[in-house]
Structure formats: structure tokens, C-alpha cells
Design a protein around this nucleic acid. Structure first.
Lengths: 252, 252
DNA sequence: CGCTGCGTTGAGCCGACTCAAAGGTTGTGG
DNA sequence: CCACAACCTTTGAGTCGGCTCAACGCAGCG
């Protein structure tokens, strides 16, 4: 039997140094588990609901739309990622949340999370840190789209997704599941689908990776990193808990 | 005598429904006030310090750099904006923070803020909401750079800055102070300085705005909004406090 | 009064786009 | 189990938004 809560716990443990009590509480949150098809809205722009979602398996994203149909994916949500912690802090969604592939998602009522936060201050910290991690990724994406060319840009995205999948035990050897179409990659990287195709061919030709059928294999990680100019700084792999601990009297 | 804390309080009040006690506490935080010249680092990439900065006057930014010198400004920090609340949650800076113009900045030791957060849970909420606001702006920037052309993009940035300045009482009629060079605008919008120049000329020629000598005047706000496709959703002007209140037993 | 930094202008170029159409692959229903 | 539909990937050809390089004007300032 699968441990559905595992990726979520792995993510939270990178955010704060959770104890057994907190872990148990988080496990208890993950009860209402739903399987959703691809292209299913979790929450639409402007909506205000009382539900928080956590991706447990599959792939979802945040996207913003322009009235004329131009679309920008502003985040990929992989297993372990909470989607809408802002639900009880901001009144309305400023973007849309939807699945990109068939996915498994945990649904948690806002009230339940709030009760938990009140009981476990360390968890509140962890959730705050979690949103700060998201923010750091957004800044890197801005740099990626703003200042890297198509070749570097795609390489960088794949470096990031590889590492993030690794952090939640979703990497097998050198490859991981990535059920994205080239058009969706284009939407995230602000390129056209045609150009993504041509650029992926260059990366394949360079022998650094294989991609297709919903899977990516990194054949030459070092070269891919070099192409991307990848620096994992912004993922804060050393964790955020170190400095948060003192306040809560949670000594190391 | 100037009330230095005013813009910071205005910002926090949009984040949560602060009471008199919280307001007093925040005012007390803002004691160590420093005047800095332009191009002064507040905190460099990779650094870990125990100081939190709040811009009280002037202009600062967050920027990320590529090894070869390409630069992306990922946020403008205007009066009232806290710069580095993440200091006690993340161990290292993933970007650099520096002034773009001579500025007045409040410097607060981390420990002092932590003590405050422990004493006033509502303030902790307010700070969390504040980081969520920043995140929402980042998402909009991603859309801006990713999917809008240079003309729309510059218009959008100026709409945003106009509104944000308005929220902290820094708008006089139709104009506000904006001590940015065209090269800095280019760094933020991912354009070349030359092209920013040509595009600003188009905006001036269209009669929608005046810009120069560190000031911007919006002559035709509606037209500028239309050009930019501006929707203030993402600034969450209705505030974030509404939904946060119940948890803390702070009824409206 | 000569730097130095910023704004402006011109000319040529290229990375990435659009449009269009042809192969593959996957899923589905008869 | 095949045939079709729908979607995705791939290829070609032509175009253009925004870039680079280079020079010049102008203002502030030491």
C-alpha cells in the first residue's frame, strides 16, 4: 500500500524540523484523497473556497491568462507541493490552479489546517517557509525567462524539475516521470511550441538528455547543469528550519 | 517632523487588521533609521545576517545575476516594503538587495522581530500575508515579462508602481517620484535600454504619460490601464486580513 | 571645463515567432 | 481488432520584435 502522505511530509521536513507529533498530525490531514483526470481545475481565478489541495501524485500547475488567450504557467506543482496555502490568508485566487496530467490530490478543509496551525506553531512556521520556497522559485523563473535564451532556459527547467523530483523520491536512476506536452513547456517558459520542439532536438542531439512519452532522462547531469548555468541555491536545500528553531524553543 | 513608520504601517494594515497595541509595537521597531546613497547593498546574495530592512523612503530592489553579468531585477521595493522578512526563515539570500536611489531604511535586529511575532500572533499573520503579496506580484511579473510585448509591459509596470505608491500616500495628483534610469527599467522588464527608450517615446507620443527627471505623471490613467491590460486583482487591495481573523479570535 | 553617466538616434542583424502541413501516437468506439 | 479521430510532434519557409553596436547630445558635477 502506498504511503500517500510521504511526499508532503518530505517537503514539510525541508521547511522545518518536524517532530513525531507534527508528523502524525500532518498524516491525519491527508485523508480525503482524490484521483483527478488531466486538465481539471482545482481552483479558478477569482474563486474563494475553503479547501486546500496538496498534490500527492501526478502534475498540476498555476497559470495566469490574458484576456486575449495568451497564457503563462507560473509554477509546476509536483508531488508533495501544497497548492493553495494562501486560501486562508488571501481572499481570492489571483491565478488558476489545474492538473496537467491525471493526478492524485489530497483535499483538506481550511478549518482543519487552521486548527493544526494553532496547535503546532512549528507547523505554521513550516507552512510559511513553504511559501517562501515557492517565492524563491518564482524569482529564479523570472531570471530564467528574462535573461536566458531558449536553450539554457529549457535546460534550467529540467535541472530544477529533476532536483525537485529527487527531493520527494521520484527519481529512478537518471530519469523521472514528466507528463508534459511541448506546448505546456512552451507556456511555462514563454516560448512557442515549435521552438521548444527544435530546442529539445538540440539538447537530444547534444546527448545530454532523453525526453518523450512523459519521461525525462538526464544522461549527462554535469553538462546539463553547465548549459543551464544551474545553481541550486534558490531551492534552499539546507532547509529553512535551522534559523526558525530558536524562536519556538525547539532546540537542535 | 516626518512619521517614518507611516508607509510601513500602511502596508501592514493591508495585510491584517492591526489593533492599537500592534501598531504601537511596530512603531517601536522603527527606531534605527539610516540614510543610504544609491547603489548600496543592503544584503548580498549568499549572505546571512540578522538584520531586517524596511524601505521608508526612496527606492530599492531585489536582483539576480548570471555569472556572465546578465542581470534581472525581480522586485522593486518602495516605501513601506519590508525587504527581508525571510531572514529568520531561510538561511541564505538567494538574491541581492540594494538601493536604486538615495533611500531611508529602517534596520531591525532579527531577535526584536521574533520577540514581537511571539507576542502578537496577528503580526505574524500580517508578515506572512506580506510575503504572499510579494509572491502574487512576482507571478504577475512573470506573466508581464513572459507574455506581454514591450509596449504593454512598460505600461503595466507603471500602472503597478502608480497604484502601489498610491497605497502608501506617495502620489501627488497624477504623478509620483520614480528615480529609475531607463537601463534599470530594462533590467526589470527584460528589455534592452535602447528599446525601453524607444518604447517610452511611443507612450509619451500617445499622450498617456510623462516620464523623466525621476518622476512619472499618468496623464490618461484609463488609456494606460487599457494598454497594459491592467487588472489590480493580484495586488489584493481588499486585504488579506478578512479570512485570517477568525483563527486568532480577532473578530471584525 | 572636461569627465562621466544618461538619454537619444540610426543601421543592421538574429533569435524566436507564425503559418502551414505532414507524420506519429494514443485512445475510442464500432 | 481495426479504423478513425484527436492530439502531439516534427519539418519548412518566411517574418519581425527586440537586440547589438556605435555615435552623439546633454546635464550635472568635481
Amino acid at each position: 500500500m502506498t504511503d500517500f502522505a510521504e511526499p508532503f511530509l518530505l517537503r514539510l521536513k525541508r521547511c522545518a524540523d518536524l517532530g513525531a507529533a507534527e508528523e502524525k498530525a500532518v498524516r491525519y490531514l491527508v485523508r480525503d484523497i482524490r484521483r483527478l483526470p488531466a486538465d481539471q481545475d482545482l481552483k479558478a481565478h477569482g474563486q474563494a473556497t475553503d479547501l486546500v489541495h496538496v498534490v500527492l501524485d501526478g502534475l498540476a500547475c498555476r497559470a495566469k491568462l490574458l484576456p486575449d488567450g495568451r497564457r503563462q504557467i507560473v509554477a509546476f506543482l509536483i508531488p508533495g507541493d501544497p497548492c493553495d496555502l494562501q486560501v486562508f490568508l488571501l481572499s481570492r485566487m489571483d491565478h488558476t490552479l489545474f492538473t496537467l496530467a491525471p493526478s492524485t490530490v489530497a483535499v483538506v478543509p481550511r478549518a482543519e489546517i487552521e486548527a493544526l496551525l494553532a496547535e503546532y506553531p512549528l507547523l505554521q512556521r513550516a507552512f510559511w517557509v513553504s511559501t517562501l520556497f515557492d517565492e524563491a522559485v518564482l524569482r529564479e523563473w523570472l531570471l530564467n525567462i528574462g535573461r536566458r535564451d531558449a536553450y539554457e532556459r529549457i535546460a534550467h527547467l529540467l535541472c530544477e524539475l529533476f532536483l525537485r523530483h529527487k527531493l520527494v523520491n521520484r527519481v529512478n536512476g537518471q530519469s523521472f516521470q514528466l507528463p508534459l506536452t511541448q506546448a505546456q513547456i512552451a507556456d511555462a517558459l514563454s516560448l512557442s511550441a515549435v521552438y521548444v520542439n527544435r530546442t529539445l532536438q538540440r539538447l537530444r542531439a547534444a546527448g545530454v538528455l532523453e525526453i518523450g512519452q512523459g519521461r525525462v532522462s538526464i544522461l549527462k547531469p554535469d553538462e546539463l547543469d553547465a548549459i543551464a548555468g544551474f545553481d541550486d541555491d534558490y531551492l534552499h536545500l539546507n532547509g529553512g528550519s535551522v534559523r526558525a528553531a530558536p524562536l519556538l524553543g525547539h532546540s537542535a
